[in-house]
Design a binder for these strands. Structure first.
Length: 297
DNA sequence: CTGCATGTTAGGTT
DNA sequence: CAACCTAACATGCA
């Protein structure tokens, strides 16, 4: 599940290798991976050069020499792999890009076949239709704008964080982790959260995203960067995928609940819906081992 | 075998 | 309109 940090990691890794490269041959092995007719996709890339590469939300943007762009969204299991042509094709390799002056290929591999690639022409003012509804970048929005936008909506905070029109690039992992770090229950209504709480959430989220980028992303299931290495941020996850394990703050078991149709991992003690009557959390001493097992009612 | 869970978006309904 | 719900995709697992 590549989210913002994973896409950013891949872009950073591929940038130096692909910039200035000219597409020579494009093989589309699974037609539905590309938007629109396969032949026009191929024709619109052939002999174009990649001028630059960037990320917006969870999208890859390749700027092409003719002014158009190649957009790629990996969805759940998509991967972009830069590899020598003689390396055996991985299973589920759906698109292969070859370049004029580069011995290596760029391969789009996607087990679940949800990912999509498309070539798009920016409008006269430079806007891209496919990205038009994306909200601000979490690492670019100001704290006060974040708070204002959250207060303007009447929605559970977790689904709101996942809403790409609210913020672009946040997915299930970082939403759960940010809410945990900010001690906010995923079902709290966005407009009922205090400014203090929302500021804490903003700080947790941006802090986590930056750290995850520095760690090369989170590898759960299939994520690897553009050159095939795993990220390291999975080692720092506090709640995601840890149902039943001990909360590192209070020692109680991490819970899992469906919120807005999605699995949500959180600590029912540290992230309560009612925060008014908060008890002192049972903090383990500095440097001491964290309490294990169920010890909280 | 069946049924369900998975993450995300699009599209439809309330 | 905003919020909410579900189908779709392919695969693995209980």
């Amino acid at each position: 599940m590549p989210e913002l940090p994973e896409v950013e990691t891949i872009v950073r890794g591929l940038k130096s290798k692909l910039t200035e490269q000219e597409f020579s041959h494009i093989e589309v092995r699974l037609a539905k991976s590309v938007w629109g007719p396969k032949n026009s996709f191929i024709a619109s890339l052939k002999r174009r050069k990649i001028l630059s590469m960037e990320r917006r939300g969870k999208y890859f943007i390749f700027r092409l020499s003719d002014g158009k762009v190649l957009l790629i969204h990996l969805r759940m299991t998509g991967r972009l792999i830069f590899s020598p042509p003689d390396l055996p094709r991985e299973k589920h390799t759906h698109v292969i890009f070859s370049f004029k002056d580069c011995p290596s290929q760029l391969r789009f591999v996607d087990q679940r076949q949800f990912g999509r690639l498309r070539v798009e022409k920016p409008s006269a003012d430079g806007r891209l239709e496919s990205l038009a509804s994306l909200g601000p970048e979490p690492l670019e929005i100001s704290p006060r704008d974040f708070i204002r936008r959250a207060k303007a909506r009447h929605r559970e905070i977790k689904p709101l964080l996942l809403d790409q029109e609210f913020l672009a690039g946040v997915g299930n992992i970082y939403a759960d982790e940010a809410l945990y770090q900010a001690r906010i229950h995923p079902r709290r209504m966005s407009d009922a959260l205090s400014e203090k709480n929302l500021l804490r959430l903003y700080r947790s989220l941006t802090d986590l995203l930056r750290k995850a980028i520095r760690a090369g992303g989170t590898s759960v299931r299939t994520f690897v960067n553009g050159t095939g290495s795993a990220g390291r941020f999975q080692n720092f996850l506090q709640v995601y995928g840890r149902e039943g394990q001990a909360c590192k703050v209070c020692g109680g078991p991490i819970g899992r609940e469906r919120v807005g149709g999605r699995s949500s991992f959180f600590c029912p003690h540290c992230q309560r819906v009612r925060m008014e009557r908060r008890r002192k959390p049972v903090r383990p001493g500095k440097g001491l081992p964290v309490a294990r097992g169920k010890m909280v009612a």
